[in-house]
Design a protein around this nucleic acid. Sequence first.
DNA 1: ACCATATGTTGTCAACGTCTACTTCACGAT
DNA 2: ATCGTGAAGTAGACGTTGACAACATATGGT
Lengths: 199, 199
Amino acid sequence: MTTTAPYHHGNLRAELLAAAERALRDRGADALSLRALARELAVSHAAPAKHFADRQALLDALAIEGFARLTHAFQVIVERADEPVRERIRALVAGYLAFAQENPALLALMFAHKGEPDASVEVIAAGRQAMAMTVGLVAEGQAAGEIAAGDPHRIATVAFATVHGIATLGAGGLLEGEPTAVIAEHALVLLWDGIAVGR
Amino acid sequence: MTTTAPYHHGNLRAELLAAAERALRDRGADALSLRALARELAVSHAAPAKHFADRQALLDALAIEGFARLTHAFQVIVERADEPVRERIRALVAGYLAFAQENPALLALMFAHKGEPDASVEVIAAGRQAMAMTVGLVAEGQAAGEIAAGDPHRIATVAFATVHGIATLGAGGLLEGEPTAVIAEHALVLLWDGIAVGR
DNA sequence: ACCATATGTTGTCAACGTCTACTTCACGAT
DNA sequence: ATCGTGAAGTAGACGTTGACAACATATGGT
């Protein structure tokens, strides 16, 4: 009755991704090894190559998956048409910051095209898609008379960059322990009211 | 007259850092190998270990050096007491974005404490020092009546995060090619005036 | 003159990514 | 029914790397 292990795993690709994300969370991207993943899944060291051309391809897949999750979460929030725009913006910010805090290594991976000349086009596309979710909300806010006129894409970009900056600084320990959510709330107030005197 | 190579290199540490920064710029942090650096400097493969305990120590040193350069550049700008605050802020932003554009891989390294649990304390300290340079300028702006009241540290943090976010998104190719300087100028205007309607 | 120490060298090891050749297996055409 | 073809997994090898240990050489203080 010994159930012999089948020659084919059957679900390797998905399980590799899952194990990789765990490893990423626990030990960071640098410590992620294809061979270790293969061992963990009781599969030969060369098996992962059948699903991911090389190590970078696996990391790219993780990044894309991360962006996809983010995009979906954003969409759900944006579509709450009954909520005021500012409330939804707040929810977007909170969602992003929570994601960043729970997945710091993954977040770094998603935006880590640093020096590599040939950054994956697909990863970048996935990232742009996630960012694009916020543009419509800004436009909606303008239509509702809550947000001043101006290219909504530009406004959304600046806002996203601000939150993203807060998230990465927080992950890097440069915010002296202050919660990113608190900083972000200040940012929202500053951006909403402006910081100039008088006017 | 053959000048025999001396047993001791004499300046290995500094040259390692220089070569490492070149390699970082050209091929990215992942492709940086201690052995390759040793080869480049015509030194044995174990020589770098005498100056940097491990690979990460070298990368940390690079990051600290990067922050030091940034801090110095910031200080020079902040100390131009004759220039109006807003002009100096503009210069700070331009300086940071230029640094980011010229050293994308180094910038990534400087803030890349991602998943690694034991991020170098010294790197973080160097980063905080750089960020701290901007606080005084905000306070000065408040004293001059150009910037509204509020914790200057908080305002500076939000502003820095915004610019940092723009820089990293730009480096990641997520700004659809628009120059980071243009986005940052919009950000400054938005932050200065606020985006709320009416008020 | 001497020696402690910093700096470099050589040799070794385990781990890793990647490549090639081979095996197993599911499945559709015949 | 069977055949063969391609996808999925295995086994082994190669070259590179980071790290370590043992040894060699230079340097500077006493």
